[in-house]
């Protein structure tokens, strides 16, 4: 583990409060609550869409375990990446670079939460869901954070799988298995991840360059990144309509996926055709924010449709 005392932006803040130890809020920050909220939401959708029933108390426990497992991944990621986090504008205020929490505390926190979340989910709900949660955490830490992130521009393409598992875990919590429908939900998030992160990487390119993380704009250039954003968006948009075409989502979802997909594609093409870097960055910021809204709305549409059908029947 790199010595965080050598990180640039973090040094000053570290000296101020390191002796007081971390606040409870620092440990909550370690769990990346914003990422966690999207994980909970997509897992809930998988849980609601799955055929069969699960006692509400067990469903709540399943969601709690998935949320805590995602939080544990976040803490372990911050432990491993503390050296580069301190040098990047976006991440310099995280608890380890600021000196509020030591790297060892974050590691212990992450490991304890990982073990508890996986075993609780396995024991109380079922072991397929527990195993998928363990796979998600392991994939995020060992495959994405430790192996791919600092080695290849394909880091977020392959690593994106970790973020795509939650609806599959939710589905498995109810059915005890994996099915075509849950794989499709997985694929939607998997295909969504590259344009989402590359939009961010376009306007945060210097940050990644400074710390040597080979994000696509750093390694292959901005033009290639813009091209790849268009390619992955063109794959994502029709894929997101598939649940309606396959019959496990209805017309409301289909319409939502088509309309929002058209906006997504328009922004991706906007990035591709923009004449100068400032314009590209401007649209990339829009695409990054819109992509979060897009994914949220797709899953919300699935959820609303299923709840409405249950109320009417």
């Amino acid at each position: 583990m790199a010595d965080i005392a050598h990180t640039g932006i973090g040094i000053e803040r570290r000296a101020l409060s390191s002796s007081a130890g971390g606040n409870v809020s620092d440990f909550i920050t370690l769990m990346k609550p914003r990422v966690m909220s999207l994980v909970i939401f997509t897992a809930l959708t998988g849980l609601v869409l799955a055929p069969g029933t699960l006692h509400p108390a067990l469903a709540f426990i399943a969601l709690l375990c998935i949320a805590v497992g995602a939080g544990a991944s976040g803490a372990l990621n911050m432990w491993y990446d503390a050296d580069i986090d301190g040098q990047m504008q976006r991440t310099a205020a995280r608890p380890i670079p600021r000196g509020h929490v030591t790297a060892e505390e974050a590691l212990t926190f992450g490991v304890v939460l990982s073990v508890f979340s996986v075993f609780t989910l396995g024991l109380i709900v079922n072991w397929v869901a527990g195993a998928l949660l363990a796979l998600t955490i392991a994939f995020y830490i060992f495959v994405y954070t430790m192996w791919l992130k600092r080695r290849t521009p394909q880091n977020i393409v392959i690593g994106g799988a970790a973020g795509a598992f939650p609806p599959m875990i939710g589905w498995a919590a109810v059915t005890g298995s994996v099915s075509v429908e849950s794989i499709l939900l997985f694929l939607i998030i998997f295909m969504w991840t590259p344009p989402h992160f590359w939009a961010l990487a376009l306007y945060r390119c210097r940050d990644y360059e400074r710390v040597g993380v080979p994000m696509l704009p750093v390694v292959a250039g901005r033009l290639e990144t813009r091209r790849q954003i268009v390619i992955y968006s063109a794959l994502l948009v029709p894929l997101a309509v598939l649940p309606a075409l396959m019959g496990f989502a209805g017309a409301f979802y289909g319409a939502t996926a088509i309309i929002l997909g058209a906006v997504f594609m328009a922004l991706a093409l906007g990035i591709w055709s923009a004449e100068d870097d400032r314009k590209v960055d401007h649209i990339a910021r829009h695409l990054f924010r819109f992509s979060i809204f897009y994914l949220f709305m797709l899953f919300a549409a699935l959820l609303v449709e299923r709840v409405a059908a249950a109320v009417m029947s």
């Binding site: 002796s19 007081a20 130890g21 971390g22 606040n23 409870v24 440990f27």
Partner: peptide, 11 residues
């Protein structure tokens, strides 16, 4: 330091 430790223990 004591306040933060107390809050962590409580959590």
């Amino acid at each position: 330091r004591r306040r933060r430790q107390r809050m962590r223990s409580l959590a």
